[in-house]
Nucleic acid binder design. Structure first.
Lengths: 204, 204
DNA sequence: GTCTATACGGCGATAGAC
DNA sequence: GTCTATCGCCGTATAGAC
């Protein structure tokens, strides 16, 4: 592999990202990361003391990439339906092109829950305000009073699960890559419509 | 641990189930399974030749437990809304009490896709007929014509993802076990209502 | 900073006594 | 069938030359 990056540290980090995303923590090998980076195994330990530390760096990057978007969108100034439309569209695009990311995050949380705890402590991430925002808009725009956490879960589920299940769709239903792309592309319209229809259903 | 089971093979299988579900394939240790079973490591190899074979046995059990229910319900004789209500209620109960199962299955599919392939080949599992059934009922009962795979994914997503995300809910929102139980219990009503509302929304 | 060589431990698997 | 002891490999981490 050609070393395009300016410095070695970044080369290692990018290689580690690829390998951890493919294999998870236990499955990844320092040797494989070294090969991917076109460097020597000893260098990984020179820059990041241990496999653990290297993993932590990769995890935090992936986690904030996914979760910062939610905060941004929900604290903007649009209707709930618009916010959901933007969020769903963004997620389905981003995640279906990086389909290892949601698996990676979920996998981390089961394999190494300390990673998430560490992330939560260092970045002071405040997801509760998102819930308050949802509750407020549900009440004002639809006159619905249900646990905003439930709605939050509906939205995340409909975006994230189908991406996690990608390999299952391939193997169980034999979908090829063109069918997959169509499927995710259609979902960008279908999911916001589905949610909006559901909200309107409560009104009557 | 007390050996309650009749035969050793079953003792090992149950221990293996617990450990694989906790740690995944790479994370699990044959020693840990032996300890969990209250038996010796060598015995695992006596009954199941290798770690691989033992894993395969555990995987197939978990996978068929989850997927056979879908087939049963969708080939029954009720309205689509009723089917979904039954399925959602069953899944949320079963999965929230066995929250490692969905993670385990997803994890397997990323870590060892051959496992799924092997399962599909030995049990001739036909999920396409479920899709045809959904399409038929959507048309007849709601006059909706959308890709049934999309609807199928909506249902699975809303059931399975919140269970996969359980550890995230605990760590990010600090929910305790009582709050979690309430949350999943409420979902049994909220999700079928949500879906039914959405379907009715297409009518107008 | 980057490399080669190697120490050290852990884990899957097997041999062999009972 | 069940156990103890041990082999042999592989993977993380480090020592040390350049």
């Amino acid at each position: 592999m050609v070393n395009i990056e300016k410095n070695t540290e970044l080369t290692i980090l990018n290689a580690a990202k690829k390998v951890f995303h493919r294999k998870g923590f236990d499955g990844a090998r320092m040797q494989e990361i070294a090969d991917e980076a076109g460097l020597n195994k000893a260098l990984l330990h020179y820059y990041f003391r241990s496999k653990e530390k290297l993993f932590q760096a990769v995890f935090e990057h992936a986690f904030s990439e996914v979760f910062s978007k939610i905060n941004d969108v929900f604290h903007s100034d649009f209707t709930l339906a618009s916010k959901i439309e933007v969020l769903v569209s963004y997620y389905i695009s981003f995640l279906s092109e990086n389909s290892y990311v949601p698996w990676f995050i979920v996998n981390c949380i089961y394999e190494k829950p300390e990673s998430l705890k560490h992330f939560m402590e260092t970045n002071n991430f405040a997801p509760v305000s998102v819930l308050q925002m949802i509750a407020k808009q549900l009440k004002e725009e639809y006159n619905i009073e249900i646990d905003p956490m439930q709605v939050y879960m509906h939205v995340l589920s409909l975006c994230i699960f189908p991406v996690i299940a990608k390999p299952m769709l391939q193997h169980v239903f034999g979908m090829d890559s063109i069918q997959m792309n169509n499927f995710y592309d259609q979902r960008k319209k279908i999911v916001p419509t589905f949610i909006a229809n559901a909200f309107n259903g409560y009104k009557k």
